[in-house]
């Protein structure tokens, strides 16, 4: 297995993306792009609408539309995953919408992400995750009754519970107000650093840049 090392710290890379090309039926959206992220780092991708930001995230997660074509390589924690199905990549996703399943309680939404095992251990993980995002007491709540910030935190807890090694965020703070955005940013970036994950954020908001050294601007085709 080929292992990639960060040029700065000589630590194994948590995520290494090499894009030869990302094509839509009409154009080449991204060409010759490389992103190397050590554990706990957050990379930001910005660019105009239609420049291929979300398509790039979809290519990383393995959810690219059939009409699109990705050529390149993706390694997560030293494991090549670009030919694996989405569920085997261990890359979690957070969208602008929280996408909490409406027919499940908050607890059931979180349990959906916990791997099979003894029920008591799974429940304990959920309880811990809820505590981490300050949602104790909301385990049995209807997601529809939560506020926007609470829903976003529940969605984050669910994504983190899947034991993913990387986290992709597609404009995750766009629907939150300014105060909530700052709180969510701190929560997300803190969780990424604590868990040693790699994260890529697609955004239009410069305030979402976690590390000014790790930014990619995509130009519209």
């Amino acid at each position: 297995m080929q292992r990639f090392m960060s040029s700065c710290t000589d630590t194994p890379l948590a995520l290494h993306l090499q894009v030869q090309s990302l094509r839509s039926p009409a154009a080449v959206l991204v060409q010759d792009l490389a992103i190397a992220l050590p554990a706990g780092a957050v990379h930001t991708i910005m660019g105009a609408s239609g420049s291929g930001k979300s398509s790039l995230l979809a290519a990383i997660c393995g959810t690219l539309a059939p009409a699109m074509q990705f050529q390149g390589m993706l390694h997560v924690m030293g494991r090549r995953v670009d030919s694996l199905p989405t569920r085997a990549r261990r890359i979690a996703l957070l969208y602008q919408d929280d996408l909490l399943f409406a027919h499940m309680t908050v607890r059931e939404n979180l349990l959906f992400a916990v791997a099979a095992g003894p029920q008591a251990a799974r429940e304990a993980q959920v309880a811990q995750a809820l505590e981490e995002v300050e949602l104790q007491g909301f385990a049995h709540a209807d997601p529809a009754t939560l506020s926007g910030g609470q829903r976003a935190r529940a969605a984050l807890a669910r994504a983190l519970l899947s034991q993913a090694q990387a986290l992709m965020l597609d404009e995750p703070f766009a629907k939150l107000d300014v105060a909530l955005r700052q709180r969510m940013r701190a929560l997300v970036f803190g969780a990424v650093a604590r868990r040693g994950m790699a994260a890529i954020v697609v955004t239009h908001d410069p305030a979402d840049i976690a590390d000014a050294q790790r930014v990619t601007y995509l130009l519209a085709p």
């Binding site: 039926p25 060409q31 792009l33 490389a34 291929g52 009409a67 990619t216 519209a220 085709p221």
Partner: peptide
């Protein structure tokens, strides 16, 4: 480091349609 990626438009080769 700020990576700049220039995207290049090309005509479709029809591979998707095929």
């Amino acid at each position: 480091m700020v990576a700049r990626v220039k995207s290049v438009s090309v005509t479709e080769h029809g591979s998707y349609g095929n």
